[in-house]
Design a protein around this nucleic acid. Structure first.
Length: 249
DNA sequence: AACCAAATCAACCGCATATCG
DNA sequence: TCGATATGCGGTTGATTTGGT
């Protein structure tokens, strides 16, 4: 029912975004706000489909995006949330301020999935030492590469030759504040995008599926032990998660 | 230097769901 | 209530980079 027409129409640009396109989109959204993606390209003068614009904005152009440097704590949180929620990337991303579902999904597929799998198979002898070929701050010194058509490559350069001057996890423990959104998050992880609201029955349709509890109640409940971001995921939060998972299964 | 396989990640695709008239 | 449209989401693809030989 009502599938939106595919983006792949003639005359529309596809593939990597150029700096000019980014600017047009950013300027438009700054003035007119998000939403109405379908009409946005026409109004903004972009030869893109609405979906593409939305994705570009949400994943790269939003001012509150935090990119790269997924800290160990964030990693742990992602793993636990994934254990809890499965591939609900948007929900997981909702607990990680500044992170996008796409980024987390990619990170999971390229790093954490393997790591978790390894930990399962190799009986977790050392739970952190094996980062495989862990990217070492891959995006810090990446240079957006542009080709002749001015395409913006926000792609991170893999960086195996790291100088140790790079400070470890500069953004650790600091859910970034959205620059232009009036968020009044408490210091611990809180939803920054309204995915999980304080009143689930009104605002969060995803809540209804959990049977004997609201998902947002769960997620808004005692995560502090888990999310204290002091690098120490407490045993109590381990148990908390374990219990939750068992309850749901 | 050239080639190739693996890794990475931005972008696309298509389905599900929400919203509106 | 129903159908059309808009938006959101997760899976997948493909271009690019890296590292090994």
């Amino acid at each position: 029912m009502g599938r939106s027409p595919c983006c792949s129409k003639e005359g529309l640009n596809r593939g990597a975004w150029t700096a000019a396109e980014d600017k047009m989109l950013t300027d438009y959204v700054k003035i007119h706000g998000e939403g109405r993606w379908r009409n946005l390209p026409k109004r903004a003068g972009l030869k893109r489909c609405g979906k593409s614009c939305r994705l570009r904005w949400l994943n790269y152009l939003r001012p509150d995006i935090k990119r790269g440097n997924i800290s160990h704590d964030e990693e742990e949180l992602i793993i636990r949330l994934h254990k809890l929620l499965g591939n609900r990337w948007s929900l997981i991303a909702g607990r990680l301020p500044g992170r996008t579902d796409n980024e987390i999904k990619n990170y999971w597929n390229t790093n954490l999935g393997k790591k978790v799998h390894d930990n399962h198979t190799t009986s977790k002898n050392s739970n952190q030492s094996h980062h495989g070929k862990m990217k070492s701050n891959p995006k810090i010194d990446s240079q957006p590469k542009t080709n002749e058509s001015n395409v913006v490559r926000t792609k991170a350069m893999r960086c195996s030759k790291v100088f140790n001057t790079i400070s470890p996890q500069p953004n650790k423990a600091q859910p970034i504040k959205a620059m232009d959104t009036p968020v009044t998050n408490p210091p611990e992880l809180c939803p920054y995008n309204g995915v999980l609201s304080p009143t689930p029955e009104e605002d969060n349709p995803l809540d209804a599926n959990l049977g004997d509890g609201w998902l947002s109640d769960l997620l808004n409940s005692d995560f502090s032990g888990l999310c204290d971001f002091n690098g120490d995921l407490s045993t109590s939060s381990e148990l908390f998660f374990k219990d939750m998972v068992e309850d749901w299964t």
